[in-house]
Amino acid sequence: MSRSVTPPEFGWRPGLRTGVGLGLAVFPVALSFGALATTLGWPPAATIICSVIVFSAGAQLALLTTLTAGSTLFLALGAATLINLRFLPMGIAVAGSLKGPAWKRALGAQTILDGSWAAAYQGAGRYDRLTMFGASAVQWPVWILGTVVGVVTAPPPTLVASLGLDLVFPGFFLVLLLDTFRSTPRAPWIAGIAILLTGGLLLVAPAGVAVLLSSLAALVILIGRGRGGTGRSDDAELA
């Protein structure tokens, strides 16, 4: 990519700034969760505690919809877990960037959220943990506040669309994806395959499973390489 681009910033402060942007998108989602849970009969305390200790939109909505639809506890937990399994490869990816003993890295990994994880990507497999911490530190209280407001006010779900806030997440992911084109070899190929794979899977599988399996597109990087994982000219870009 031969063009001038504002270089991304990393650290606590850029992370907090990113968190404010993401918080604008997170708030209405949390509000929707709070409103929906109240409508479906969850007690306010359970709804708010769920947002405090689970802090995952997809898993919380899966648990809410499956339990209130009469599903068993086991199946409801299975659906919610499948949605959050995408955090497993994300955790593996950031493992080398978190510091300290195992318990400290495990705690730091709790700040892995889709947007925070993506914002922390520095290229060539490196992640800035402070950026991830900062972005998540803003989103967590916003998520709880949004849930509380949703429980109390129960606004109509059309509010998010009328303000154009449903573009924030796909827009944010698009910008970060384009950024990887500068830092990761074969990124356009990997992204193209992931898009086709995810688009197809969404027709037959839960969204969380589709995202999880999109990670298989990363295997494209191995095509044409020897058993040692080297042998291509673009290895230099990874160094």
Binding site: T180, T184, A187, P188, A194, L197, T198, A210, I221
Partner: peptide, 26 residues
């Protein structure tokens, strides 16, 4: 090395997946 290469390639794969899920939905 081979696992490391795949891990380095997870970002564009997962970001593309997240983009499509956010855009299309279940």
């Amino acid at each position: 090395p081979r696992v490391s290469l795949v891990v380095q390639s997870l970002a564009p794969a997962l970001l593309a997946g997240l983009l499509i899920v956010a855009l299309l939905g279940q």
